[in-house]
């Protein structure tokens, strides 16, 4: 399923990519584009997320298919000019201080010493580590390590930022700061690919979501777009109205409504079959029945709910 409607230029293109390790197929015929903005990569353990990230960053080659980053094969050194990676593991050169690590990372990108120093200071400030940068990395907490790794990914100002669970271990305030940073990078036209197993993070953060499971791309697009595609997915809708007991039986006459439960004092919880049709039917119903609706809200449009449904559909097609 692909609900792509964005018109941004793809910075990374994945074309019919399959990857297997011995007898294990980690990715199976995946095609997708990653453009500017924040893209969330969501899937359970073993879904193929890390394999996709490793393919995109040129650590491994696809068994079949092609991956281009900014017009270059992802395996090539030229493609890596455009990629910044924040890997999942905590490991880095722990014996160095945060400042030394940034300078070394800039040096590895080929910057002169003066330029490396300048970039190191700028990035340390960007990730909020400038005041702790003289400490050895081995003394850093998990959250500080995430920030310093993010700094390593940002040091050469890449077009495509690949972040594997970047908020793992970061405190809530830090999460919000980093999310703001991701948004500002996206606003600069960069592509930010964020892998996360904390699905609700994606609700607020990602412009687009890639759902991946068992090596296959189940869906891609904005949450709303994906949600709209799932016509047969039961949706829960909460209605706050003046006289819930009066309109509850009447709502059951609508074809799209599967069940209604009353939640005192003034709310109804509906399970609807086809969201698009329901909203049309409910509009007519409310206008004609003096329903006194104060508020209507779909309760399970979260990434997690959509993902659960997609997983269910992938594992049990019928």
């Amino acid at each position: 399923m692909n609900t792509e409607t964005t018109t941004t230029i793809a910075l990374a293109e994945v074309r019919n990519v399959s990857k297997w390790f011995g007898p294990v197929m980690a990715l199976n015929g995946v095609s997708l584009d990653i453009g500017s903005g924040i893209t969330g990569l969501v899937g359970p353990n073993g879904a193929g997320k890390t394999t996709l990230l490793r393919l995109l960053t040129g650590q491994i080659k696809p068994s079949l298919g092609e991956i281009d980053v900014c017009g270059h094969d992802a395996w090539s050194a030229k493609a890596k000019d455009h990629i910044g990676l924040c890997p999942f593991g905590d490991a880095t050169w722990d014996e160095l201080s945060g400042r030394q690590l940034m300078r070394v990372t800039a040096g590895l990108r080929g910057f002169t010493r003066a330029e490396a120093r300048k970039r190191a200071e700028a990035v340390l400030e960007t990730v909020g580590m400038d005041d702790r940068a003289n400490r050895p990395v081995r003394t850093y907490s998990k959250g500080m390590r995430q920030r310093i790794k993010l700094g390593q990914a940002l040091i050469h100002d890449p077009d495509l930022l690949v972040l594997d669970e970047p908020l793992n271990g970061v405190d809530p305030v830090g999460c919000e700061e980093l999310n703001d940073l991701f948004r500002s990078l996206a606003a600069q036209g960069k592509a930010v690919l964020v892998s996360s197993h904390i699905l609700h993070e994606m609700d607020q953060l990602a412009d687009r979501i890639l759902f991946i499971c068992q090596g296959k791309l189940l869906a891609s697009g904005s949450l709303a777009e994906i949600r709209d595609m799932l016509d047969d997915h039961p949706l829960k809708v909460r209605i706050s109205c003046g006289s819930p007991r009066r309109i509850a039986p009447q709502l059951l006459t609508l074809e799209s409504v599967k069940s209604v439960s009353i939640e005192p004092p003034s709310e109804l919880l509906l399970e609807v079959q086809n969201p698009g049709r329901f909203y049309a039917e409910f509009g007519e119903f409310a206008a004609g029945n003096d329903a006194q609706v104060h508020r209507l809200k779909a309760t399970d449009t979260s990434t997690e709910a959509v993902f659960d449904y997609l997983m269910e559909r992938a594992l049990h097609p019928e």
Partner: peptide, 27 residues
């Protein structure tokens, strides 16, 4: 942050050299 990438492969290799030398010596 400046976006123009003025980089040198030789400088990058020199950094790999220095890093590897340092890490191997202090080991």
């Amino acid at each position: 942050m400046e976006t123009a990438n003025k980089t040198s492969t030789v400088a990058a290799c020199a950094q790999v050299f220095r890093l590897a030398l340092r890490r191997q010596f202090f080991s």
